[in-house]
Write a protein that binds this DNA or RNA. Sequence first.
DNA 1: AGAAGCGGTGCAAAAAAAGCATCGCATCGT
DNA 2: ACGATGCGATGCTTTTTTTGCACCGCTTCT
Lengths: 296, 296
Amino acid sequence: MRHLQTFKLIESVVRAGSIRRAAEDMNITASALNRRIRNFEDEFGCEVFERMPKGVRLNPAGELLIQHIRGQMSDLARVQSQVADLTGVRRGHVSIACSQALLPWFLPAQIAEYRGDHPGVTFAVNVRDRSQAERDLSNHSSDLALVFEPILMVDFELISTTPQPVCAVFSTAHPLATAASVRLRDCLDHPHVLPANGYAIRHLLEVATSDTSRRLAPIAESDSFEFMLHYVQHEQAVCFQFPVGLPESELAGLVVRPLPVDEVSPGYLRLGQLKGRTLPVAAALFARQLHQALEL
Amino acid sequence: MRHLQTFKLIESVVRAGSIRRAAEDMNITASALNRRIRNFEDEFGCEVFERMPKGVRLNPAGELLIQHIRGQMSDLARVQSQVADLTGVRRGHVSIACSQALLPWFLPAQIAEYRGDHPGVTFAVNVRDRSQAERDLSNHSSDLALVFEPILMVDFELISTTPQPVCAVFSTAHPLATAASVRLRDCLDHPHVLPANGYAIRHLLEVATSDTSRRLAPIAESDSFEFMLHYVQHEQAVCFQFPVGLPESELAGLVVRPLPVDEVSPGYLRLGQLKGRTLPVAAALFARQLHQALEL
DNA sequence: AGAAGCGGTGCAAAAAAAGCATCGCATCGT
DNA sequence: ACGATGCGATGCTTTTTTTGCACCGCTTCT
């Protein structure tokens, strides 16, 4: 798109942190890029970058501008997607920032289903923690965020909320496997594996134990649920995960037991978008599908 | 602004209805303009205009595009205004679509007060009926709308609402001038002058008389309140206006009496903006001032 | 002290846009 | 019926803008 070239270049400079690096990325010379920026700043009425010996950085005016630019670009993409829609060519691209739990089963299944109807639509799936996911929305680097317990900042517009009980997961050979029901305190009596700090499940478990005498005493911590699920197949330990992250087909040898919600509050899986933004057709449609899938 | 030139040209073509006329408006040749548009359509991916023997018209894709363009331009203006704000140069421009009643006194006073604090800010005041005012917001051709009883379409975001009783206005020599209170039926017993159909006061009076045996029988209709106010100084007749349209200082020889609200419902003066839009600093500030002034 | 990396600038080459003249086409008025 | 008019489109030349190249001055790091 020719007419937004200057904006794209500026965006690239912001990302690269220096005019020369950005020039290389965009396959033009630094001098040309430099001049375009200076010309733009002239027209714009004030400087946008702070020149420093090691490169450039946005000044406050530039911060305002870059937000505008990002908004413009994603809004134009939305318009083009809508136009493509009414031209009959259903194409598009959906980018999603999501929690790890959605990777093994839920999102692959949902995307495959969507692409069954609309093969022209492409996807980008990025694992993000809850605050980074929201930042991605603000950046316009993701269309949708699907995370547990987001920080819910002002820019986050909820599309859907689904409570998910925390589940204990252990091997079929584990002593708890024969118990009628499993409480958190039972799990803590056994060796247990926990997600690292910052993860929603860890947070919920911390809260659940904070007013009891029981303490979390993980034999292992990890930022990978894949690791933890595999670990409890090797040692008689307990790990935790949300139902949406537990594909039934891959649970051979494992037992899943939801913890009672009066003991451990459920995690809320929240689907959201950037507040006030009109999503491209493809993203809006996919969001609707997710919403329906999550309601079940 | 160089980089939005193409957008400006397209907008101009939409307004002019033909490439040649737009070219003249923008001081370039028709061939250059034509080529820019065709190039843009290439990049954009599909045609934007319907070519007709008498000129061009937007096709559905173009309708979507022009909305995007207008949004872009006004958002960029907002950013520039914010930047000017933090550069210390408080400048800006506020455009208002408003009812006639606000012209003689309220808006002049408000604008003068605002410009007392911010002499760099300029204003555009356009008289619009309630539906046109809302259309102006959608077009981004006005920042604010201040009208009675707007149609309240989906794009209208209310900032402030003020009830205004309908007032009867007549000369001090009029028989009603000595009455303790004035009811609508009293006014209808005398010759009366009404605003034309479509005006809020006319509508409210129609509603008030619809379930009675009394009928409106205006000796004169007008779309100018200025005319009506002056008319009742020449003949012993009654006219109607909202308090906000009646400057006390100019009412020598006239009596103003509010009609009881249980007989004639008050008109609601509504200040609004385009839904979801972030107003430029100057407009947002002025809206806040209006809001406070209207609360008294 | 020197190398490396940064933004900025003068100048010539290259590319893009504009202007001009002209075409084909549909409509309108006489 | 038919020419006049006004529309968008297009080939060609000229003008303007942008780019690339070489180089400067500056700061930082080794």
